[in-house]
Design a protein around this nucleic acid. Structure first.
Lengths: 258, 258
DNA sequence: TGAATAGTGTCTATAAGACAATATCCC
DNA sequence: GGGATATTGTCTTATAGACACTATTCA
């Protein structure tokens, strides 16, 4: 074996490595979680945003987030942040929460090196509005998606007055990633039902899908596909207070394990 | 079993090691990256694994990984770890690298709180073998997937002698997540071509797909679909040294941005 | 009764699976 | 020629899209 030189190289490299990354002596990246809380209504995807009171990005709008405690799980931290910043009562119950992506570009936070594990949470319209009402700090941002399909990229956030909301850090990119993930999973997972109340009509599901995908869908085939999944149960009840023939209300049934 | 004594020694050693470790010393989680380097051949998905020389999990097999430097990007750290632990030469060039998931359960590392951002990398068989040969520390693990479709869950890792390789930490879960992701993206992204050399036959792509999905595919329809993507270019050349009619060699062409 | 949307039935286009026939290499 | 796989073509079946028609509510 001729690895004398090689071995020397490796030793030196290891020494350098240990020097550079000795966790006791040198700073390490900090870890946060940030959650895109999303819902769908009025033909748009909406996110809950919190106004920042401190630098950096003071006055800009950010996703509810927090530093991760040393003994705390990531989802646990995400839920804690939602309760603290996006409504104590609205998140007392379970919420659909899924890990999205981890953003770790050095420089994404000008203060220090912060790696954030991004999550997204899905709730129905009513719960979303309750959450916003639950805190004085939160705003409703309507997402304006400047790309089609699953191209990806940051999104624009529009306030309730129609003016853009300036987002903090790379949170517009996190929201874009959430939209991309939603679009990708919508067709082959029951994720869309998380955005609807207990009972809903087929038209409401279609509206949710069309809003998320950003394009109209064929009504007949959407209906057929949806009923064919076996995930829907007719409740026998009908819609109320419509100016037309009321539609039947369905319920989402979790597929039992096979 | 003849390794009772051995095992007892290791346990005691590990206890002593953990005792000497002061978990209160650090108030924040540490961040690492770990990469599942994968390829496909002989009807199996294979991963590169590195034998651990230190506690915890001394002697067990782990994914190549490292702590993330305070000024270092996540992918950058992943590449650095690949070069150091999985072959300096094999990773001098670009490699397909994709973020997988971030594992942050408190307790996943018995020493201290470590959050790991997991990646997976895809290479063709030759490069994989070069990488393994490039280092004396690495082993080839064949993945035995105990679930179907995209159910998910940890996988078993089998060594070249057919005996199971004991994996460190939650790395069997990371590998399982990588397989799940591969299965999910195979049909609608060009990810499979990363596992093939420059030129390949349609049969070779099908073998890759069948191995990853774990089920046989209809040859006719696979062929049609593959050619219909417009991602393949016939090279005019033919396979060589076959015991039958040689197939045409194709090349993967990156779709130009629309 | 009219407006509006729900819900049903049928036809067509497209993609997937099955299968048969032919082509081409090595031995 | 025989063995083995590639490649092409055709038929059948499943699914999506298009469209016409009926049903049911409220104003």
């Amino acid at each position: 074996m001729t690895d004398n030189g090689k071995k020397g190289d490796a030793d030196r490299e290891e020494r350098e490595f240990l020097q550079a990354y000795d966790p006791e002596e040198f700073d390490r990246p900090a870890v946060t979680v940030d959650t895109a809380l999303l819902t769908v209504f009025d033909g748009g995807i909406h996110a809950l945003l919190v106004r920042r009171r401190e630098h950096p990005f003071r006055g800009h709008w950010a996703l509810p987030g927090t530093f991760v405690g040393v003994g705390e799980g990531l989802e646990e931290a995400a839920i804690r942040a939602l309760r603290r910043k996006a409504g104590r009562h609205a998140f007392a119950r379970d919420v659909y929460l899924e890990q999205l992506y981890t953003f770790g570009e050095p420089g994404r936070d000008p203060r220090m090196r912060i790696i954030t594990v991004a999550y997204f949470a899905l709730v129905d319209r009513q719960r979303f509005i309750d959450a916003v009402a639950d805190t004085g700090e939160a705003a409703i941002g309507r997402l304006d998606i400047p790309w089609e399909g699953e191209t990806g990229g940051p999104v624009q956030v529009i306030g309730e007055d129609g003016a853009p909301l300036e987002t903090a850090f790379d949170h517009d990119g996190i929201l874009g990633m959430a939209v991309k993930r939603l679009r990708g999973k919508l067709d082959y997972t029951p994720i869309g039902f998380q955005l609807l109340p207990e009972r809903f009509t087929l038209r409401q599901i279609q509206d949710v899908h069309e809003t998320i995908l950003g394009r109209p869908l064929n009504k007949d085939s959407f209906r057929r596909r949806m009923l064919a999944t076996g995930l829907l149960e007719a409740t026998g009840r009908l819609e109320r207070e419509t100016a037309h023939r009321p539609a039947e209300l369905y319920r989402f049934i979790r597929k039992a394990a096979v």
